[in-house]
């Protein structure tokens, strides 16, 4: 009887804990959305921020976040792809490979602020790129590389070895076999991984404060010449992102509506993350279904 009661209590506690975790999340999301959604308007999303007066928006920051995300993915995807292929296909089983894997693991667990500071030291100061989108994208690449590499390696490994052997036995090179046969099969996993990593990159701030900078310069959204200094596409301009903006106005913001702006911006960030999450699932499933279906292409 005693042990039965004990059992009942313990199970109840476990259930209560699980429910509390759900409540915590529901509270977080609910609070952010409830607080933030009322501030979101077309004007808020498109107009520039203001430093000292109320009524500023997050237009440039939103653009910067998306632009940086795009650049980061463009830089980090090919490198991760190469590294992922190396690890799954070419890495010999020896000490060097162990060291390489360890290095990637260490890189993935480095605090993002350290990665950001390194980017600051090397690119902003040493290479004199200054606070710029380019420096920011490179720092985010460092931050993104280990996760994307691991994801690509796992996706490649999950493809049946039979497919690999089929290609090789026909006299194809390993490189072509991987690129033309294995990678298309691994695509659902890779796409899911990229989209999830996009969510992480989109919300990252610590690595950007000292690389992409904390100011959103006035950009002219009608000037799309990437070499012009007022163009939004210019790689060398400092670019405060949405996440950095939230941090900044909360640490040193002096505009009267700082809380409202952060609430709105936080809601936008959360919605973006939710969208990335849903997109990852949807795209992954969609691609998977498309590939395994026996229907005509």
């Amino acid at each position: 009887m005693n042990t039965k009661l004990q059992n009942k209590i313990a199970i109840t506690i476990i259930k209560a804990i699980a429910i509390m975790v759900v409540i915590i999340l529901a509270f977080l999301i609910g609070r952010i959305l409830l607080q933030g959604l009322p501030h979101i308007s077309w004007h808020f999303l498109t107009s520039p921020s203001r430093a000292f007066t109320a009524g500023g928006g997050i237009g440039p920051q939103l653009f910067n976040s998306l632009y940086l995300l795009l650049l980061t993915l463009i830089i980090s995807f090919p490198i991760s792809l190469g590294a992922g292929i190396y690890l799954s296909e070419y890495a010999p089983k020896n000490g060097i490979t162990t060291v390489i894997r360890m290095a990637i693991e260490v890189l993935s667990s480095l605090p993002s602020v350290v990665v950001g500071l390194f980017g600051f030291l090397l690119f902003v100061v040493q290479f004199k790129l200054g606070y710029s989108i380019l420096s920011g994208a490179i720092a985010l690449t460092f931050f993104n590389l280990p996760l994307l590499t691991r994801n690509i390696e796992e996706s490649i490994n999950s493809v049946s070895n039979l497919q690999r052997e089929a290609g090789l036995a026909l006299g194809m090179s390993k490189w072509r076999t991987v690129n033309k046969i294995i990678l298309p099969e691994a695509l659902p996993g890779i796409v899911t991984g990229i989209v999830l990593s996009a969510g992480r990159v989109f919300g990252e701030a610590a690595a950007l404060i000292y690389t992409a900078g904390q100011s959103a310069t006035n950009v002219n959204f009608s000037n799309w010449n990437p070499f012009s200094s007022t163009s939004p596409l210019n790689l060398m301009r400092p670019a405060e992102t949405l996440a950095v903006h939230i941090w900044k106005i909360n640490s040193e913001g002096i505009m009267p509506d700082a809380t409202a702006v952060s609430a709105g911006a936080s809601a936008v960030l959360i919605i973006a993350v939710l969208v990335f999450n849903l997109m990852a699932r949807f795209l992954g499933n969609y691609l998977y279904k498309k590939m395994t279906s026996a229907e005509t292409k």
Binding site: G167, L168, A169, L170, G171, M291, T292, T296
Partner: peptide, 20 residues
């Protein structure tokens, strides 16, 4: 690669590519 082109192989489990 050339060797494998001249010595072909069929495997235990059918392994067609997921192509047409």
């Amino acid at each position: 690669y050339e060797v494998r082109k001249h010595i072909g192989m069929v495997f235990q489990r059918p392994n067609p590519f997921s192509k047409s």
